[in-house]
């Protein structure tokens, strides 16, 4: 073997070692969730699903799960609507306040979640949204706005604005342009944005921590005290379930993109 081949092999081994390290905590958590007892040691011979049963039979966990799902989906819809409209307006029009808005929309990424939570707390307290799911949805939607905005904007930048003009020239009204050109062309970006927003909201724990009360406990809010004070395989189970749901929703949305894409290709004129 030449020195170059050795170098290349070493590089691949080292690279995948780092990638492996990045996945290791997640995989280890999954492994722990099959533990047969309440000690946090990974099962070697006797794998058990008793903690999954415990999760399923405890209504507090299932309530939290359904709340998380609801908040995640509502947040995805809201942030995609607001984010995509903003991205389109910013890319295709010049207007007053555009520069300020461009900075403002990226700000949620730069403000530490603890500060966001601390800011939302007195606000929601004052307007009576503290302890409501609506408050959580709004807070998450604001946090997801930059992600959706960036995804849709990068898609818009790849696209040729001439498509829209060409459609207008061929006699399409603005609403027809949206339905026949824009949605089919950037549908994929909308869905990717929605999936990202869902994943962020579904797994978000910081703002949730500041805003959730016992009546609005979502999955992360349930996991959190357990993790901090008494880690048990139940935490691992809840984690595994949340990963599966996040992946499932993301791939489900991916499937929708393909379906819609295939349909609109053959849409009659």
């Amino acid at each position: 073997m030449s020195p170059y081949h050795i170098f290349r092999t070493l590089r691949i081994v080292a690279g995948f070692f780092v990638v492996g390290c990045l996945v290791a905590p997640l995989l280890y958590a999954v492994w722990l969730s099959f533990s047969p007892d309440s000690f946090l040691t990974p099962p070697e011979r006797d794998w058990s699903v008793r903690w999954y049963q415990a999760f399923a039979t405890d209504s507090r966990w299932s309530m939290a799960l359904s709340r998380s799902l609801m908040v995640g989906l509502a947040c995805a819809v809201l942030s995609v609507l607001a984010g995509a409209m903003l991205a389109y307006g910013m890319e295709r029009y010049l207007f007053r306040g555009k520069g300020t808005l461009g900075i403002l929309v990226l700000l949620p990424m730069c403000i530490p979640p603890a500060v966001l939570g601390m800011g939302l707390l007195p606000l929601f307290y004052a307007v009576g949204l503290w302890g409501s799911l609506l408050g959580l949805v709004l807070g998450h939607a604001m946090m997801c706005l930059p992600i959706v905005f960036l995804i849709v904007r990068s898609k818009l930048r790849q696209m040729n604005p001439d498509h829209e003009m060409a459609a207008r020239g061929l006699g399409a009204t603005p609403s027809q342009v949206v339905g026949r050109i824009i949605i089919p062309l950037w549908g994929s970006a909308l869905v990717v944005g929605a999936a990202a927003a869902f994943a962020v909201s579904f797994n978000e724990s910081m703002v949730t921590l500041f805003l959730a009360t016992p009546t609005t406990e979502t999955l992360p809010a349930m996991i959190w005290p357990q993790l901090r004070y008494s880690p048990s395989p139940l935490v691992a189970v809840a984690s595994v379930i949340s990963v599966i749901i996040a992946l499932g929703v993301a791939s489900g949305l991916g499937g929708i993109v393909k379906l819609v894409g295939a349909k609109s290709r053959n849409k009659p004129g």
């Binding site: 609507l81 409209m85 903003l86 029009y93 929309v105 800011g119 606000l123 939607a141």
Partner: peptide
């Protein structure tokens, strides 16, 4: 453009700018 930017601007002002001022 104002209609397009409206919802996002409302979210950002209501849930980012106001809370920061409130803090």
């Amino acid at each position: 453009p104002y209609l397009l930017a409206g919802p996002a601007a409302t979210l950002l002002i209501g849930l980012l700018v106001c809370p920061l001022l409130l803090v």
